[in-house]
Design a protein around this nucleic acid. Structure first.
Length: 634
RNA sequence: GGGGCUGUAGCUCAGCUUGGUUAGAGUGCCGGUCUGUCACACCGGAGGUCGCGGGUUCGAGUCCCGUCAGCCCCGCCA
């Protein structure tokens, strides 16, 4: 008896395959794996009542756990009377345990829809372990039922999470994270935890702030990423670091953005980009092995940032499709089209897409493609359908035979042209490319398009004309470009790279700046004076000056990666307890107002008097509240 | 910060265009019949702050204004 209760996976038992890891005190095994091989086995099973079919004399229960469903049959000939009575009273989601034997069903009674459909458990005893209220949203769903509204699914998240879809998503998420840890461990990376209470950063996204009780008027920030800490780890000699790291950004949300999210964060010393890219390609292969719908073949394609923009108009091109942007400035500038001469006069170009067979699109469809280019910032596109009698469309009247020949069109093709600066035409043509591919139902060249985009510029021009960091301010400038930093900063490439899968950015990284003098030059270019630099980044510069090795790394968005790997449209499908688009947690009801006493302890007061007595109700929060630090120096 | 869509029974939805009797359906729930169901079947029943507030009107689920919530997008954010 004692030996039977030792079901923990001690090493010997695991190696010898002698224990059943599914066994617990209350059940002999889980449900999903029971098969006709188990005929005659006496089992104690436990789970939730998924569905009950009460025929009066006979009762069938579909019992559910995370591994699957098993039908339990109860009847007067084999079930004890008290258990039979109880079975009549069971409701959906009650938690029960049954004792019985595995019976192979007669051929006409088999259920081919479920893996355990060849057997059932003929129950002698049924016990209710816990009652369940009638579910507010159904866990069971018949084939044609729609999902409950997202709001109710989030409010009753525990019930929603019981559905097999979410169970499977989170189980795959676990396997991906585990595969990641195993892979990086084998490469000698060690996982190091970094602080959640950190120092506010002036760069990038807004920080979530945490008031300090011990230091009124002072605040911690939650990390936007462990970026600086992992560089400190390199300076500290840890050489190869990783972390499955929670990150926080207080910005508006999207289907693919949550205020808190998880990154696979990696950093290594004495590396160049090829080291990181090679390791990470191997990581993607290891992860793809866990996900049936994803494949990864190495090495991945590489494009420079400049080339990606030239050929696809975006820094995250979807390379499943071959359509590319063409530069037709030479062929078309001579045409008598005012838009063209104006664009070229301003230093712009005439670029476009040649869509084979595109003339079959209706005018309305083409205008829809043009519409997506307009949303992306273009005033419009010129287009021409190519036919035997010449062409039609807004571009056709400017075209002549030579122009068509130079573009290389054939009958039945469609030509789209955008005129203007690259800054405007690239996003427009990128959007038009994807819209046209969809409208024309162009088949994929490949199903899995993995791509590294490399050599990102380190700066971009902000709305006010000031320089901002394209990525973050710690990217090592490309050695060939370093001497142009002050003179032509926008032309300086960085040793930075993004991983793109089917047009979705999965992660990005760079070789970091390990030279404190060079780092200071870059921070100055971003508009910080030396005093600010010392105040905000002094600890990093000091660490670099203490003998930091050359280092670099990368970070991947786990939520986005899992969503892609399970084919989910929204990150909420791969996060157990996600926030709404207004960053509320509907299940537990966060955030929540703080009473006077709580505020006082933190040295805070609210700026709007009418809000101070705000009721602490979830979901019905009234108006924004702005916290002030009574002792803040700024 | 801006734009769009949605909100009616526990759940999914119809009704709103064109204001007018007691607001419907499916499912779930409750009661009953039923020994091979697996969306069990059949009979009966209960169940509504039409998101909330205001307005127009003799009369508002329906029209108007505001507001709240959820979702999608732009800005923002890698």
């Amino acid at each position: 008896m004692v030996a039977e209760r030792r079901h923990y996976p001690n090493e010997f038992a695991l190696v010898m395959n002698q224990i059943d890891i599914e066994r617990t005190a209350l059940r002999s095994r889980m449900l999903g794996g029971i098969r006709s091989d188990d005929e005659g086995a006496e089992l104690e099973l436990a789970g939730w009542v998924h569905r009950r079919r009460d025929l009066g004399g006979l009762i069938f229960l579909d019992l559910r756990d995370r591994s699957g469903l098993v039908q339990v049959s109860l009847g007067p000939d084999w079930t004890e009377p008290a258990s039979l009575d109880l079975a009549h009273q069971l409701g959906a989601e009650d938690v029960v345990a049954v004792v019985g034997s595995v019976v192979v069903r007669s051929p006409e009674n088999r259920n081919t829809e479920i893996p355990t459909g060849d057997i059932e458990l003929r129950a002698t005893v049924l016990r209710r372990l816990n009652r369940a209220d009638t579910p507010a949203i159904p866990v069971y769903r018949s084939p044609e039922d729609a999902l409950p509204s997202e709001e109710l699914r989030l409010k009753h998240r525990v019930l929603d999470l019981r559905r097999s879809e979410l169970q499977e998503n989170l189980q795959l998420r676990h396997r991906l994270v585990l595969a990641c840890r195993n892979y990086l461990d084998k490469l000698g990376f060690i996982e190091i935890e970094t602080p959640i209470l950190t120092k506010p950063t002036p760069e990038g996204a807004r920080d979530f702030l945490v008031p300090s009780r011990l230091h009124h008027g002072e605040f911690y920030a939650l990390p936007q990423s462990p970026q600086i800490y992992k560089q400190l780890c390199m300076a500290a000699g840890f050489d190869r670091y990783f972390q499955i790291a929670r990150c926080f950004r207080d910005e508006d949300l999207r289907a693919d953005r949550q205020p808190e999210f998880t990154q696979i964060d990696v950093e290594a010393s004495f590396v160049e980009p090829d080291d990181i890219l090679g390791w990470m390609e191997g990581l993607m292969v290891a992860l793809a092995a866990e996900a049936p719908r994803i494949q990864a073949e190495v090495p991945f394609i590489r494009l420079t940032h400049a080339e990606a923009l030239e050929r696809f108009g975006t820094d995250k091109p979807d390379l499943r499709f071959g359509v590319e942007i063409q530069d037709w400035t030479h062929a078309l500038a001579r045409l008598d089209a005012p838009v063209f001469s104006a664009a070229v006069g301003e230093g712009g170009r005439l670029r476009g897409l040649l869509l084979e067979g595109g003339a079959k699109l209706s005018r309305r469809q083409i205008e829809a493609v043009e519409g997506s280019a307009k949303v992306a910032g273009a005033p419009g596109l010129l287009w021409a359908k190519c036919s035997d009698e010449g062409g039609s469309g807004s571009l056709a009247r400017f075209m002549d035979e030579d122009a068509y020949r130079e573009l290389g069109t054939k009958t039945g093709d469609l030509v789209l042209v955008a005129a203007g600066t690259d800054r405007m035409t690239s996003p427009a043509l990128s959007a038009a490319r994807l819209a046209a591919i969809e409208a024309l139902e162009i088949p994929e060249d490949r199903e899995h398009a993995w791509l590294w985009v490399v050599d990102f510029p380190i700066f971009e021009e902000g709305a006010d004309g000031a320089l901002t960091a394209n990525h973050h301010p710690f990217v090592m400038p490309h050695p060939e470009d370093e001497d142009r930093l002050e003179a032509e900063p926008l032309s300086v490439r960085g040793l930075a790279y993004d991983l793109v899968y089917n047009g979705v950015e999965l992660g990005s990284g760079s070789i970091r700046n390990h030279d404190p003098k060079l780092q200071r030059r870059i921070l100055r270019l971003l508009g910080l004076d030396d005093a600010e630099i010392d105040l905000k980044f002094g600890f990093l510069l000091n660490a670099l000056a203490s003998g930091a090795p050359p280092h670099g790394g990368v970070a991947f968005g786990v939520d986005r990666l899992v969503a892609l790997f399970v084919g989910a449209d929204s990150l909420r499908e791969v996060i157990a307890f996600p926030k709404t688009t207004t960053a509320r947690a509907l299940f537990e009801g966060a955030p929540t107002p703080l009473d006077e006493e709580g505020l006082a302890e933190l040295g805070l007061s609210l700026s709007r008097a009418e809000d101070q007595a705000a009721p602490a109700r979830t979901g019905e929060g009234d108006g924004e509240q702005v916290a002030h630090a009574s002792g803040a120096e700024t």
